[in-house]
Nucleic acid binder design. Structure first.
Length: 326
DNA sequence: GTGTACTTTCAGAACTAGGT
DNA sequence: ACCTAGTTCTGAAAGTACAC
């Protein structure tokens, strides 16, 4: 049983739970990075570490260690693996706080042991209402300009001053766009913060760049823009979890011959995104979808809105997607 | 060409938490 | 309870392109 199969099965198991409002795979943080995040109605969060078949004791012990680490920033922690391995190694998983999930050969999931609530949270993971990155307005080249502005300002500072960094971001926005009203400052900075957070390019605590952030900053200065765009695409697909969105788009394309209008397509897409718990009911997925196709087109993942017979559709450039996520 | 559907860009409304 | 500042989300005008 592959790692991805275990992840898929366990994610589905959480989605089936009425109390769960949001399920995301591998999204939200750098290290240590859980395979699944499940968020409950009251805002409590469970993190899951998944392990495949035939991996050797060492890997299952590492999984236990990761699960323990998750208890420092989430309410519940689970370790999931195939039934066979769970039986072999269960004696080592004696720490009762860690929940255990057993995945059968037919990919059916069983709750082997309920997790208990963490008593050791150091820094709580904030509940989210989206299982995909927040995105508004910014173009790929603008993202690079903003990263550069943040890093330039940071290098000037002896002592961290977040306000000055935000002022630097705003100055950069004013340079990039023709904005009339100062009132927009907060909205713009916020939109930028949320995007960079979700792409995992900066730590919001101190505006320090992550490894991905640094890489993008460097790639963006090259004369050839392709490596930058490719890397940014990877961040959107993996870090911001847009891979799940285009997977659902493909499902829709397979299911329907086409769509009468963009609006029709977006409504159907939004409905499934909520069904699949990629967003909560209170998320305005439709509004998000106003901007998401644009960035996917900029990243060369999505075609234009093309006519086929009487209907229309977006096509997904899977060749490129697969090359980038390798 | 022109009306309509779609895209891009800017603006601000609606929450939320904390203080009094 | 009310105010305020800060955060998050929503709306829509302006611009563009596309079918007819």
């Amino acid at each position: 049983m592959e790692h991805a199969e275990v992840v898929e099965a366990v994610a589905d198991w959480f989605k089936a739970n009425k109390e769960v409002v949001l399920v995301t795979k591998g999204y939200g943080r750098g290290f240590p990075s859980p395979d699944i995040t499940a968020q409950f109605r009251q805002g409590k969060i469970a993190l899951v570490e998944c392990k495949p078949s035939d991996a050797g004791g060492r890997e299952y012990m590492t999984g236990l260690g990761q699960s323990l680490a998750y208890l420092t920033f989430a309410d519940f922690s689970y370790l999931a693996m195939p039934e066979k391995e769970l039986n072999i190694y269960q004696k080592y998983f004696w720490i009762k706080e860690i929940g255990l999930l057993s995945v059968k050969e037919n990919l059916e999931v069983q709750l082997f042991r309920q997790a208990t609530e963490s008593k050791v949270i150091l820094k709580r993971e904030e509940p989210r209402i989206r299982g995909y990155g927040y995105y508004r307005d910014l173009r790929p080249s603008e993202i690079h300009s903003i990263l550069r502005a943040i890093q330039t300002e940071r290098n000037k500072q002896l002592r961290l001053d977040k306000n000055k960094i935000e002022n630097a971001i705003w100055r950069e926005v004013l340079r990039l766009r023709k904005i009339q009203s100062q009132k927009q400052k907060n909205a713009w900075i916020l939109n930028i913060k949320l995007l960079l957070r979700d792409l995992q390019l900066i730590n919001l605590d101190d505006y320090s760049l992550t490894e991905d952030g640094f890489r993008l900053l460097q790639l963006g200065t090259l004369p050839d823009k392709k490596p930058y765009i490719d890397e940014l695409t990877r961040c959107f697909l993996i870090n911001a979890n847009y891979l799940d969105i285009i997977t659902i788009m493909q499902k829709l394309n397979d299911q329907y011959i086409g769509f009468t209008t963009v609006q029709d397509f977006k409504e159907k897409l939004a409905e499934i995104m909520i069904e699949e718990k990629l967003a909560t009911e209170r998320t305005n997925v439709i509004r998000d979808l106003q901007d998401i196709p644009r960035i996917l087109k900029d990243l060369n993942i999505l075609s234009d809105w093309k006519k086929y017979g009487l209907n229309y559709r977006y096509n997904i450039n899977w060749k490129r997607v697969l090359a980038i996520i390798r």
